[in-house]
């Protein structure tokens, strides 16, 4: 059994907390945007589409830098939030939540969008003739049928958030106990002499956490799939 140092534990716990919060906070937005993109045609849809997917193709450092200059202490949005609401993201773990969330968002939206597009819309028509208004229809037909995609999207986002490096280190730096997530800690160990053993430990932990996440999502998806396909 490998012994984890307090610093290792801090990094692991912080990573899990940041990835979980980033996933949960972005999930409602992810579902909303995915539904919008899957179901509505509106002016500027291509542009919205492009902006959502931008973090996927941009170098993460660029995304982190863009976050820094908008949400940082002196950025227009960051300054406003700090002055009026006392909300500060820069060099805080909440800032890491934002960078992880933004980086994971395209993957989440994509998975949910595909599952919504795959839903037989005639079922929603049937629900409408049975008296279901748009919201009730969405909550009782669209959402449950899209659940496998939503879980897959959330799991992808969670995994992506766990591994986030470039945007996080650029936006909120590498502060142990505050913004030093698992990949950042690992990177730090590789930069100091004699850090190899610690780096190995964190590597192993990363593998275990990733495997566990995959396993959980697979089991969840299977259970739900069986329910949806109506097989007992």
């Amino acid at each position: 059994m490998i012994e984890l140092s307090p610093q290792d534990w801090t990094a692991v716990a912080l990573s899990l907390r940041i990835a979980t919060v980033a996933t949960l906070v972005s999930l409602p937005f992810g579902i909303a945007i995915a539904t919008l993109l899957a179901r509505r045609n509106f002016w500027g849809k291509t542009l919205v589409d492009a902006i959502i997917y931008l973090p996927l193709v941009l170098p993460p450092v660029v995304t982190g830098y863009l976050l820094l200059i908008t949400l940082g202490r002196h950025g227009p949005v960051g300054a406003f939030l700090a002055d009026h609401f006392g909300i500060v993201f820069a060099f805080r773990w909440t800032g890491a939540v934002i960078s992880c969330g933004v980086m994971a968002f395209p993957l989440m939206v994509r998975a949910i969008r595909l599952s919504i597009e795959a839903i037989d819309r005639r079922l929603e028509d049937a629900a409408a003739t049975l008296g279901a208004g748009p919201f009730w229809n969405f909550a009782t037909v669209t959402l449950p049928l899209a659940l496998p995609g939503i879980i897959a999207g959330a799991m992808l986002a969670f995994a992506r958030a766990l591994g986030e490096f470039g945007a996080t280190i650029t936006f909120v730096s590498n502060i142990p106990g505050e913004t030093q997530t698992l990949p950042l800690a690992l990177y730090t160990f590789t930069q100091v002499p004699g850090g190899d053993a610690a780096a190995w430990r964190l590597t192993l932990i990363s593998v275990v956490v990733a495997m566990a996440a995959l396993l959980v999502s697979e089991l969840l998806a299977r259970g739900i799939d069986r329910r949806i396909r109506g097989m007992s």
């Binding site: 005639r122 079922l123 028509d125 049937a126 629900a127 037909v141 449950p144 049928l145 329910r227 949806i228 396909r229 109506g230």
Partner: peptide, 9 residues
Amino acid sequence: FQEHRLFPH
């Protein structure tokens, strides 16, 4: 409907 359209879930 012609094809029943029951909710599978």
